[in-house]
């Protein structure tokens, strides 16, 4: 998995690429959570993520919860088809 972060004012647009599984979920977590913790609005682009499992969904849940605590925004702005399918299955947890 690789990532890129664009900065626009207080917004941080995080683009993740590749496959997000147990092996790399900590890398995704350590990329996103500190930005939210610092009070930034985080917009996550998953349009180039080819595979995501429950480890990746857990990162999204943690990010959403932290954003609520920090009273900031955490949003998905684009998702790939594989991610959309996993999100649909996990929807009741999100």
């Amino acid at each position: 998995m690789t990532y890129k972060v664009d900065e626009i004012d207080n917004k941080r647009i995080v683009h993740l690429n590749g496959e997000i599984d147990m092996e790399v979920s900590d890398k995704a977590r350590n990329t996103i959570l500190p930005l939210i913790d610092a009070g930034h609005e985080v917009h996550l682009n998953l349009s180039k993520v080819e595979y995501m499992d429950s480890s990746g969904i857990s990162v999204l849940i943690e990010s959403k919860k932290l954003a609520e605590q920090k009273k900031t925004k955490f949003e998905l702005i684009e998702v790939s088809k594989p991610v959309e399918k996993v999100l649909a299955m996990a929807r009741k947890f999100l």
Binding site: D53, S58, I61, K92, F93
Partner: peptide
Amino acid sequence: IDNVKPGGLGTFF
């Protein structure tokens, strides 16, 4: 379902 902590999702899938 109403527990929003991560974990246990894999078994659900």
